[in-house]
Nucleic acid binder design. Structure first.
Lengths: 187, 187
DNA sequence: GTCTATAGAACGATAGAC
DNA sequence: GTCTATCGTTCTATAGAC
């Protein structure tokens, strides 16, 4: 049994069935597996959720890092914004999980939101910035993520369409338009 | 049996137990009611969810309208932003429901996100504005709401603290800082 | 390490007495 | 209009054979 396969299939299933209908029974049916086998590898449902969160974070991080190194210098924040949007549009199941995991009782408190932020923080903040700046940037980052989720929930998950380029530009401009951070990666 | 009491209690219960643990059994236990009695008034679980969504929207609308008429003229958008944040901080159960209902299989598609937007749209948009402007403003509105949800999820629901005034100002400034809409209510 | 079988509880929803 | 009792199903999770 491939552990990662379980996570991928469960994410997919969750998008289709929503939270309350994504049961162990449904998961093993989709995997063509037995409950006993699944519980041999995962101690309970929470562990599956936990690994879905880890997997989602890893996938996003990997994707953003690729985007970050692929193109160089100018408009780095635009490239990152665009990459994040494109990634979540392509991986709807991850988008849905990120949006709906907050309401689930199977995800323990600690995992929930902050881990995702930390990653963006690393991309956007350097060590030498002062506390006040960091706090405000964290707020802005939180706002940024929330905006992406809400907009993509509406456009992609409800209406099934991808954002137009001008919309991506609008989103980027709203948050990072004339931001000093734009210059951070221009060195 | 008070219909509205069921909705209020269920919202409260949901914040504590999360989506998958908010069952009919838990609801009737909290209400000190019998299942038969609950099902005499609500045809199924979806109907309860539907009315929670309606109730949440009504409460927000009522609250924003009060804020809108109470204070006059200048900085209307700041007052609305602040009122929305304060309302959701005070009514955590509504905040949690708005955040987590997207992942639920008991809320039918149609209700989901748009209805909440329509209300803000009415507040922010007038009839005579052109389509392009409206579309962009709708995107911005969506971003605005998503930001509020994400920020308050983190600050209030996870960390249990209210936003500081400077944070509210930051949020307002990010979206409506030097916006022509500021003048809309100054007539 | 996968299976079948099933425990044991909880689920949404209903029937019928009062 | 509220109750008790319970239907039939589904749930998470486990035991034990292979």
């Amino acid at each position: 049994m491939d552990r990662k396969e379980v996570i991928k299939i469960t994410l997919e299933l969750m998008k289709e069935k929503k939270l309350e209908k994504t049961t162990i029974g449904e998961i093993v049916k989709r995997l063509d597996l037995s409950p006993g086998s699944l519980y041999y590898h995962f101690k309970n449902k929470s562990e599956i959720y936990k690994e879905m969160a880890d997997y989602s974070l890893e996938e996003i991080t990997r994707n953003l890092n690729e985007a970050r190194t692929a193109e160089s210098n100018k408009n780095r924040l635009f490239i990152l914004t665009r990459a994040l949007i494109k990634f979540l549009e392509e991986r709807e199941e991850i988008l849905f999980f990120l949006i709906s995991m907050k309401g689930s009782c199977y995800l323990e408190e600690e995992i929930k939101s902050q881990d995702f932020l930390i990653n963006f923080k690393n991309i956007l903040l350097t060590e030498q910035q002062d506390m006040n700046y960091k706090k405000r940037m964290l707020l802005k980052l939180n706002m940024f993520l929330g905006s992406i989720y809400e907009v993509l929930y509406d456009s992609k998950l409800v209406n099934g369409r991808n954002l137009a380029e001008y919309e991506i530009r609008d989103i980027h401009a709203s948050f990072w338009g004339n931001e000093i951070l734009d210059t951070k990666y221009n060195n």
